[in-house]
Amino acid sequence: MNPSNWWIIGVLVAQGVFGPHDIRRDLTQDYCGVCHTSHGAKAGFLLSLSPRGEIQTSSPDAVLDSVSLFCLACHSDGGNIGQKMRSDRLLGLSLTDDHPIGIPYALRVRARPDYTPPLHLPESVPLKKGRIGCTTCHDPHSKKEGPMLRDARPNLCRNCHLLRIQDAHTFLTCTDCHQMHSAWQTSLLKPNLATTCSECHTFLPESHARNPWECESCHNPHRKTGTKHFPPIKKMP
């Protein structure tokens, strides 16, 4: 790289633009050219290539945008590069167990009051041609929030999900019970939710002695009262 461009690199580094994507740490190399190109770009954001493909996701009508496919060319190799999604989890080789991407947001949330209407979505969660992509939640140049997120959780989640933790569990964030990638359970719950519940709820009443591990079959952790048979918890600790 031309040494006269070093000040640009310096400014970008100072702004944290590169973030965790420091694949080529040696800045004398073509640093940006790993992903971007000046001419002949084949995908948005001047991305150099577009790996078209048919990737199975959690829903049949999902179509991945070119930027998400570009991300997957590295982030689907089972963890060779070492990208960690959680402390013990990786983005696996399929997207069937991840937060849905590629789905048409407007069609999916039609007549569902627990989602933000498409026209009211803030600009901080950009859709790709009306569909959710990797860049809806992640900013590949940012290292401000956790794994390159656009905003802190749970504010990021609440841009779309109006379902709020109303009274109960106010001190928790979404990711204390849910995980976005490689979840293996319905509602993207953590694999050992019962253990997660019992971290706080150590003493169960006697009526629960038979089946202490299926909390969510009676309780709704998002509501104080209402939808299910029992109020969730009378007193929060």
């Binding site: 040696d26 190799d77 060779n80």
Partner: peptide
Amino acid sequence: ERGSEPGQFNFPTH
């Protein structure tokens, strides 16, 4: 070790 010189590696994956 990490680097871009011959004989050095930068994410040797396979």
